[in-house]
């Protein structure tokens, strides 16, 4: 059953895009900044997981949590060092800074350890089950379950906790939130921490699923996740999840019908189309700019 297999392939790719896209969309939602360094946090997450498993002999799940903790810290540091002082600067200045941070992480990392790729240890071996004629790799199942759990956890944090409430408030109106006694700086840091931890988790899962990791691995998934975030409606959390899954499925089906060389193009054609016809994305409401 080729079609079932392809849907599974698509969902696996899509859930990785969705995890990265969540970080993009959360940060955009709160400070209207497209954090281009997010793809590189994803890369760092993959490497931290790799070293945790190979050097410190950690169990996969421990390594996953370890990597999420460190990338959360990195996310906060990036925000505190690079973006905080630009909070009142023009948006283009912040955007250019984000590109600068991205390049700094990529090439700084290459300077430290070199550009050669690394192969992720195959911690689960090759296990698969057959279902309706499709071969389901156990790793794909794992990716899906980890992604779903993290997304549910995120929904819980955003809607049921005090931090989540503060995040929603700051996102809605920063000034008013400040007047109500919400610590805006801490809330923004928390947003970066959560978004970066999700990217770190995506990095570890990516490493496990695709084996090869290298210092520039974050560039393309980062851009694709950005497309996914825009597709779902940037700033809207469920939008990022749906956008990621749709993008993964579209890419897979473009390859599945024999246009594998068009796969990357398809993602960016979607970006162009959505920006022309529905710039606020699938879940976005059309809002008129106030003059």
């Amino acid at each position: 059953m080729e079609i079932i297999q392809q849907i599974l392939n698509g969902i696996s790719v899509g859930s990785i895009y969705a995890l990265i896209a969540l970080g993009y969309t959360m940060v955009y939602g709160i400070i209207k900044l497209i954090n281009f360094a997010h793809g590189d946090v994803f890369m760092l997450g993959a490497f931290i997981g790799f070293y945790a498993i190979t050097q410190f002999q950690m169990n996969f799940f421990v390594a996953l949590i370890f990597s999420m903790a460190i990338t959360a810290l990195i996310g906060v540091l990036i925000e505190r060092i690079a973006y905080k002082r630009l909070r009142n600067a023009t948006r283009i200045a912040a955007l250019i800074t984000a590109i600068g941070v991205s390049l700094l992480i990529e090439y700084g990392f290459i300077y430290i350890r070199g550009a050669q790729p690394e192969a992720y240890p195959d911690v689960f071996g090759r296990q698969s089950v057959s279902l309706f004629g499709a071969t389901i790799d156990m790793k794909a199942v794992l990716i899906l379950s980890v992604s779903v759990i993290l997304m549910l956890l995120l929904q819980f944090i955003v809607h049921k906790t005090k931090t989540g409430k503060a995040m929603r408030a700051v996102s809605h109106d920063t000034e008013a939130a400040k007047l109500m006694g919400i610590n805006v700086d801490n809330t923004i840091s928390a947003t970066f921490a959560i978004g970066s931890a999700l990217a770190g988790a995506a990095g570890v899962i990516f490493g496990l699923y695709y084996t090869k990791i290298d210092p520039l691995m974050g560039v393309i998934p980062g851009l694709k996740a950005f497309v996914a975030a825009v597709l779902g409606g940037i700033g809207i959390i469920p939008g990022a999840m749906v956008g990621g899954l749709i993008l993964g499925l579209v890419e897979t089906f473009v390859s599945a019908i024999g246009f594998s060389l068009w796969r990357d193009a398809a993602a960016f054609i979607i970006l162009i189309l959505i920006l022309i016809f529905r710039p606020s994305g699938i879940f976005g409401k059309n809002s008129r700019e106030k003059v």
Partner: peptide, 20 residues
């Protein structure tokens, strides 16, 4: 007959096609 490009990481969809 299928193709990929250097630096690709996901080959599963095309491989599924080849498999069929």
């Amino acid at each position: 007959e299928e193709s990929y490009v250097a630096k690709d990481t996901d080959f599963r969809s095309t491989l599924t096609r080849l498999q069929s």
